[in-house]
Design a protein around this nucleic acid. Sequence first.
DNA 1: AAATGTTTTCAAAATATTTTGAAAGTTCAA
DNA 2: TTGAACTTTCAAAATATTTTGAAAACATTT
Lengths: 168, 168
Amino acid sequence: MKLSEAKQQFISSWGAFGTHWGINRTMAQIHALLMVSPAPLTQDDIMEQLDVSRGNVNMNIRDLISWGLVDRVILAGERKEYFSAEKDIWKVATQITRERKKRELDPMLKLLAQLEKIDGDRKNPEVKQFVDTVGNIKKLGLQADKMLDVMIKADENWFLSGLLKIFK
Amino acid sequence: MKLSEAKQQFISSWGAFGTHWGINRTMAQIHALLMVSPAPLTQDDIMEQLDVSRGNVNMNIRDLISWGLVDRVILAGERKEYFSAEKDIWKVATQITRERKKRELDPMLKLLAQLEKIDGDRKNPEVKQFVDTVGNIKKLGLQADKMLDVMIKADENWFLSGLLKIFK
DNA sequence: AAATGTTTTCAAAATATTTTGAAAGTTCAA
DNA sequence: TTGAACTTTCAAAATATTTTGAAAACATTT
């Protein structure tokens, strides 16, 4: 298989993969393209290579920057802005984890803590099942939260070489 | 806060939460409703409580069953089918992990293995960056794969009491 | 086998999300 | 300050996903 073909396939699969995780296709594709590009690209490069509009590229790049996955790069003597993705996959993974935790897990845990404190007789099966379920989800969520915190702080080597042994 | 109010809020938040993870709102809401319901419910119960159509309930229930999160229950002497969700949150988590791994991670790893074997001179920066990126994603994916396998096989107590100590 | 209760299907409608592209905004060199 | 190069915005269009509801299929009882 040739590079151009493989690249196309990688970008398109990464896009499809992203949609299963609540990320829009173009955003995932731009990310994929930048990850396999050794040099920074301009909006026009991206528009051309992915065949999408300027506005679309602009919005999704902005989003990727807000996720901390892409950086604006100013090349000396160039008027245009260039964009470059974080290439260290471990950093990409921890960054995504960090953001999703902040945006989704933390607010959910806050809500669950509220819902646990409802009025009502715990002998009532409806009440009991509700409190139990919410409580258990919260418990699991708190564990996940702690685990993710540790992972975020851990460095790649520790994960790649160490974690495996612990889990084996 | 009263049970009915808390229940509404839980169902609606769980639905919103689901949409961030590629799960449709109604499917997540049905799951939430069944998790906090002590007794099994019929399609009509669900239609009424969530105010959605019969077809919608039917399709999403079928999907939840295919994910192994909901079971059909036949009550003796009853004509109607009842539905009941797995209440053990640890089992819910491992079941979701198992399915997503099978449906998404495993195929992605298979693809990456293919893409790594492209023709071309590794001295060429375009080729090098592509091979490096794909290779690193594959490496991380394989680690995650192994870790998830261990988690799936581990039992709840081991996770809740043991993992915390290891990670602390 | 007909009537009744229940579940499933799926085309069409409703809704939600993504994408476009042109206009407005910004920056900067001359 | 002007104008060229470039970026951002956002309403409208395109697309994708979800939901509906009525008809068909199926199952059970009489």
